[in-house]
Amino acid sequence: WKITIYDQENFQGKRMEFTSSCPNVSERSFDNVRSLKVESGAWIGYEHTSFCGQQFILERGEYPRWDAWSGSNAYHIERLMSFRPICSA
């Protein structure tokens, strides 16, 4: 599993790669995730830290803005603060 997060939209700004769970992006000096690329595996992104709040399934691909992973939710969530890989047995 591999995911790359960015602190600006369209894959700009600070970037960081992960191959395992991140319970709080702010502990990695990110205020928020504004864009991301899922390089391999599937991940679950969460609205809040500690894997809480609205969940987003993140499959392999590029997500240049928050609405790319938020989709058409009843209330739009511009925040992604934690994530972890989906492990299959």
Rank of each mutant, 00 (worst) to 15 (best):
C87V: 13
E47L: 02
S88G: 11
M16T: 07
S35L: 00
G41L: 03
H76Q: 11
Y75C: 13
G71N: 14
R15D: 07
Q55L: 02
Y6V: 00
I3W: 02
S26T: 11
S70D: 09
Q8R: 10
M16F: 06
G71E: 15
V38H: 03
I5T: 04
K37Y: 04
R28C: 12
A42T: 14
M16H: 08
L80P: 05
L36V: 09
N73V: 08
K37I: 15
W69D: 06
S20R: 09
S29L: 10
Y6L: 00
G53Y: 01
I44Y: 15
P23T: 09
P64W: 05
Q55E: 12
S40P: 04
Q8M: 07
P85K: 05
R60Y: 06
Y63A: 01
T4E: 09
M81V: 06
S88N: 13
I3T: 06
F18A: 04
P85Q: 06
Q54L: 08
N73S: 12
Q8I: 03
V25P: 04
S20C: 07
K2I: 05
V25H: 06
T49L: 05
C87N: 15
E9M: 05
E17Y: 06
D31C: 09
E9R: 04
P23I: 07
F18E: 03
E78Q: 14
R34H: 04
S88P: 14
R28Y: 07
E27P: 05
D67R: 10
I5K: 00
E62D: 11
N32C: 14
R79C: 10
Q12A: 10
C87S: 15
S21P: 13
L80D: 01
M16R: 11
F30N: 01
N32D: 09
Y46D: 01
A68P: 04
G45T: 03
S50V: 06
W69R: 05
G13C: 00
V25C: 05
C22P: 01
S88A: 15
E27I: 05
S88M: 10
N24K: 03
A74T: 14
F11P: 02
K14V: 05
G41V: 00
G45S: 02
A42I: 12
R84I: 05
T49P: 14
K2N: 07
H76N: 11
T4L: 05
F51S: 02
P23H: 07
G41E: 04
G53C: 04
W1C: 15
R28A: 12
L80S: 03
N10Q: 09
W1P: 06
T49Y: 10
T4M: 14
T4A: 07
T19C: 08
A89W: 08
S50I: 08
Y75L: 14
Q12T: 11
E62K: 05
G71D: 13
E27T: 08
S82T: 01
R34I: 02
C52M: 15
F11R: 00
D7G: 05
F18G: 01
W1N: 15
N24F: 01
I57G: 04
S21T: 05
A68E: 07
Q54K: 13
S88Q: 12
Q54F: 07
Y6S: 00
R60K: 12
